[in-house]
C-alpha cells in the first residue's frame, strides 16, 4: 500500500469516526484506533497519538455548532471539567500503583452494563427528582431546542455527577482512554440532563481534557504527521456533518447508536485487560 492509498483509507474511516463521535459525545478514537492498529497494522503508539488528535478534532469540529444551538451547556462543561482534569492528574499519579489490567476488565463490564441500561431503562419517563439547590446556585439549568421549540431543563444530583466526573477523569488517567462514555453516562443518568445536552456537553469537554495531555504525546513522538493528516481532516468533516444531524435525530435512535458504541468500547477494554497491554 502506498502513502496515497493509506491516506484515502484512513480519511474514509475518520469521516465516519468524526460523525459517530460528535453524535455520541465519545470522540473519534473508538473507530480510529482499531482501524489503524488491526486493519492497517500501524504501531499502537502512532494510533494512540492519532486517536488523541481525533478527539480534539471531533470536539472542536462539532462544538462550534453545539454551543451556538444551545446543546452544549458551557457552565456545566466548565464546572465538571474541574472534576475530570483533577481526576486525570490523580489517575496519572496512581498509575504506577494500580493493576490496570484488572481495572480495565472491570471498566469494560461497567460499560456493557451502562450500554444496556442506556437503551432499556430509559424510555423517556424519568423519575421526578426534587430540584437540586446547587444547580440553581451554580446556574447549571438551561434551555435547548427540541423539535423546533425551546425547552427548559434542570440539572439534578450535582454532587453525584461531580463525583462520577472525578472518577471518569481518574480512569482516563489510569487507563489512557477517552472518558467520554462515563461523562455522558454521568450527565444522562445521574444528573438527569436531556440526552442531547449530555452528549453535546461531553463533546464540548473532551477537547479540553485531550488538549491537556497533548504535550506528553507530542514530545514522545506519538503524533506522526503522515497518519494524523488524514485523521484530522476526515474527523473535522465528519464531526461538522454530525453536528448538523444531532438536532434532527430522534433521541431513541441516538441512544441506540450510543449503546452500540459504548458496548464496543466495553469489549475493547475487557480485551485489553485480558491481554494485559496496559
Amino acid at each position: 500500500m502506498n502513502t496515497i492509498e493509506f491516506t484515502g483509507v484512513v480519511l474514509i474511516a475518520s469521516v465516519l469516526a468524526g460523525f459517530v463521535g460528535s453524535l455520541t459525545g465519545l470522540g473519534g478514537g473508538v473507530i480510529v484506533t482499531p482501524v489503524l492498529t488491526l486493519f492497517l497494522r500501524v504501531d499502537l503508539r502512532y494510533a494512540i497519538g492519532a486517536s488523541l488528535i481525533s478527539v480534539i478534532a471531533t470536539s472542536s469540529g462539532a462544538a462550534a455548532a453545539y454551543v451556538r444551538d444551545g446543546f452544549s451547556n458551557i457552565r456545566i462543561g466548565m464546572f465538571l471539567e474541574i472534576a475530570t482534569t483533577l481526576g486525570a492528574l490523580f489517575g496519572a499519579y496512581l498509575g504506577a500503583h494500580v493493576p490496570t489490567g484488572a481495572l480495565s476488565i472491570i471498566f469494560g463490564i461497567v460499560l456493557l452494563q451502562a450500554a444496556w441500561q442506556s437503551v432499556h431503562e430509559h424510555k423517556g419517563n424519568k423519575p421526578a427528582l426534587p430540584p437540586d439547590p446547587a444547580a440553581e446556585r451554580l446556574k447549571l439549568n438551561g434551555d435547548y431546542y427540541a423539535e423546533g421549540k425551546s425547552e427548559h431543563y434542570s440539572a439534578h444530583r450535582i454532587k453525584t455527577g461531580f463525583g462520577l466526573m472525578f472518577g471518569a477523569g481518574t480512569l482516563s488517567g489510569l487507563l489512557g482512554i477517552g472518558s467520554g462514555s462515563l461523562k455522558v453516562i454521568a450527565m444522562d443518568q445521574a444528573m438527569q440532563l436531556p440526552f442531547k445536552v449530555s452528549t453535546a456537553t461531553s463533546n464540548f469537554m473532551i477537547g479540553v481534557t485531550a488538549a491537556a495531555s497533548a504535550s506528553v504525546y507530542l514530545s514522545r513522538g506519538y503524533v506522526n504527521p503522515a497518519i494524523v493528516m488524514p485523521v484530522m481532516l476526515g474527523v473535522l468533516c465528519g464531526s461538522t456533518v454530525g453536528a448538523r444531524f444531532l438536532p434532527r435525530l430522534p433521541v431513541t435512535v441516538l441512544r441506540r447508536i450510543f449503546a452500540v458504541v459504548v458496548a464496543i468500547i466495553g469489549f475493547q477494554m475487557m480485551f485489553e485487560g485480558i491481554r494485559g497491554h496496559h
Partner: peptide, 28 residues
C-alpha cells in the same frame, strides 16, 4: 462579573496549563 465561574474557569485553566507544562496527565 460572574465571580463563581471566573473562579471555576481559572481553576480549569490552571490545571490545563499545569498538565501541558509538566506533562503529568497521560491520557485523554
Amino acid at each position: 462579573r460572574d465571580r463563581t465561574y471566573v473562579l471555576i474557569t481559572s481553576i480549569v485553566l490552571l490545571i490545563l496549563l499545569y498538565s501541558l507544562i509538566s506533562g503529568a496527565a497521560g491520557a485523554t
